[in-house]
Amino acid sequence: MEQHQSLITWYVLFAITQATSLVLILIDDNTLADRLSAAGLLCLNGVWFLLYGRKLVKRGVDDWRGLVYAAGSLATFAPAVWFSGNATFALFGLVPQVYMVLSVARAFVPMVLFVFTPQILTWLAGTVPALPWPAALLIIGFSQAFGWAIGRMSDQSRQRAELLDQIEALTIEAERARWAGEIHDTLAQGFTSIITLLQGAQPDVELALRTARENLREARALVASNAPSPLDGSSLEDALRRLVSGVSLPSTFRVIGDPVPLATSVEVVLLRTAQEALANVARHSDASRVDVVMRFDEDGTSLEVRDDGRGFGEAPEGFGLRGMRARLEQVGGTLSLSSDEGASVLVEVPL
């Protein structure tokens, strides 16, 4: 987008210089035939840019095609100056074009030819050049510096475009990871709970139905990009209590200390951590019970999920635990694991 806007600015400059040159040619005191010839050639020069030069400027190429464009542009510019010296004004648009289709080194010779063409033609015609020779040399030096500046701006614009592409790719990747984590933490865990309940032939089918309804609301919340549905209209403690009550194992939930308001991001992390930990208990621990304790103190908030199962063992951390750590890092929290008489997942978030 930035490069497109920059090119539009250059196109406007080229159009203005061409239009001004045409006006100066038409008000010249030469014969009508000379004025029309010069104007026609300058119009042909503009058509050459639209049909060929504009593509090179847009692509930023630097090869023989730039030399072809410069030669064609000079072939229409030079006779236009022969018929009317006022066509020299077109140099303000033509010289930048040369530097936009060629590197600074390659553009030097074509640029010098463009600048010296009016001087040479007026000298051959036996008239005084409209531009003094010292001024022509000054224009050459200025044009070379101008070309260097164009090259630097072009390189910087290209680097910014590449950086924006990289940022966009990283953003897309991060969004994919976020959605993967959300789905893993909500839908996958909820459906695992349903399967566990049904496989155990638990008589209380209402528990499975409630879990299914919770995950349906969660799916809708994900699509709408809202806060996690278990928190909608309730406190974090209530949401955790409902979550623990939906576990197929005997379970307890306690709150120690005086609850304090937490940021929504912290509440989401604590809730997701509890979901992941309870899902791991149901799938992997072979535990007979699970206890969840939430503590509030002066230093911060902690949440511990402890079971009496077989512990973590030597298995590497899976996607769920890595997702926990990633979420906790976003709110400055830490995750601690232990396998002392079962398994314990302890999450601590400072206030």
Rank of each mutant, 00 (worst) to 15 (best):
E237Y: 04
N280L: 12
A277H: 07
R242A: 15
V269M: 02
L240K: 06
A263L: 08
S248T: 13
D238A: 14
A279K: 05
R241T: 07
I256L: 12
A263S: 09
S251F: 11
V281N: 00
V247P: 00
S265T: 08
V260T: 10
E267I: 01
A282I: 01
L249M: 10
V244D: 10
R272H: 09
A279H: 10
S248K: 13
R241C: 07
V255T: 04
S245I: 02
L249C: 05
A282T: 06
L262C: 05
R242T: 05
L271H: 13
P261V: 07
L243D: 01
L240E: 06
L270R: 07
V260N: 03
R272A: 12
V268I: 08
L240G: 08
R272G: 06
P261N: 12
S248G: 14
V247W: 01
T252F: 13
P250Q: 15
R254M: 10
D238C: 11
I256N: 08
T264H: 09
G246W: 11
A274W: 07
E267M: 11
D258Q: 13
P261Y: 12
L278G: 01
V269Y: 01
L240P: 03
L262S: 02
A274L: 08
T252Q: 13
S251W: 10
S251G: 15
P250T: 11
L271D: 06
D258W: 04
L270F: 12
E237C: 15
L240H: 09
L278V: 04
A277M: 06
L278E: 02
A277I: 01
S265D: 15
L240I: 15
Q275I: 03
A274Y: 09
T252P: 05
A277T: 04
A239S: 15
A274M: 08
P259E: 10
L240F: 12
A263G: 09
V260I: 10
T273M: 07
R283W: 00
L278Y: 07
R283P: 00
R241M: 07
A263M: 05
V269F: 01
Q275C: 09
R272D: 08
P250Y: 14
G246K: 08
A279I: 03
V247E: 00
V244Y: 10
R272C: 05
S245N: 11
T252W: 15
A274T: 06
V255F: 02
V281L: 03
A277Q: 06
E237N: 11
S265M: 06
L278K: 03
R272V: 11
L270V: 06
F253I: 06
D238W: 08
R283C: 01
Q275P: 02
F253M: 07
P259H: 11
S245M: 15
V247G: 00
T264K: 07
V244Q: 13
L271C: 09
T264W: 05
D238R: 13
E237P: 03
A277E: 04
N280I: 08
P250V: 10
